[in-house]
Simulated scan of single mutants.
Amino acid sequence: MIKTFTFALVHMTVAFTVVYLMTGNWLAGGAVALVEPACNTIAYAMHEKAWARWGRRAIGRDDDAKPGMAASPLGAHG
């Protein structure tokens, strides 16, 4: 959990710094630092679901995959 929290801080700091350096605007940097990581988190969750579904279909195991377990699209060795 600590690793997740520190990664979120790094992500927000990078987002803020990039936008601030590009615009010189503290408000824009702050807004992006809050909104972009939230949007990215949602996009990542959707990506993981799609990837798991594609992986189960690719190896023909769509019915017997355990809930919450992401199947590797590369099979047992991926």
Rank of each mutant, 00 (worst) to 15 (best):
N25L: 09
P37T: 01
A70R: 13
M69L: 12
R53V: 09
A15K: 03
K49Q: 15
F7D: 09
V32S: 08
T17G: 12
G30F: 03
A45M: 08
V19Y: 01
A50K: 12
R53M: 09
A45R: 06
L21E: 08
L27W: 14
A28C: 06
T17M: 14
P73T: 01
M69N: 08
F16I: 06
P37R: 00
D64I: 14
M12T: 02
R61H: 11
A52R: 04
G24R: 04
I42A: 09
A45V: 09
E36Q: 12
A65R: 13
A58Y: 05
M22G: 08
P73D: 02
L34H: 03
M12P: 01
G68S: 07
N40K: 09
T6P: 01
T13N: 03
I42D: 02
R57F: 12
A71Y: 11
A71N: 08
P37E: 00
D63W: 11
K66I: 13
P73S: 03
H11F: 14
K49F: 15
M12L: 04
R57D: 13
T23Q: 05
G24D: 04
A31V: 15
A38L: 14
H11L: 12
E36S: 11
A43D: 03
G55Y: 00
F7G: 06
H77L: 13
P37K: 00
A31M: 13
A65K: 12
A50C: 07
T13M: 06
D63N: 12
W54C: 06
H77E: 12
A50Y: 07
C39L: 15
S72Y: 05
Y20V: 02
V19H: 01
R57M: 15
G75I: 03
W51F: 14
A15V: 08
E48R: 15
T17H: 04
G60T: 07
V35D: 01
A58Q: 11
G75K: 01
A31T: 11
A43V: 07
L74H: 08
I59V: 15
A58V: 07
R56K: 12
S72G: 09
V14H: 00
E36W: 11
V35Q: 00
G55L: 02
A28T: 08
A50W: 10
G24F: 04
G24Q: 03
V10Y: 01
Y44R: 08
A38E: 05
T13H: 00
T6Q: 06
F5L: 15
I42K: 04
M69D: 10
A50L: 13
L9G: 14
H77C: 10
A8W: 02
D64W: 08
F7K: 10
P73A: 05
T41K: 07
A76F: 07
T17S: 15
R57C: 11
A65C: 10
V32P: 06
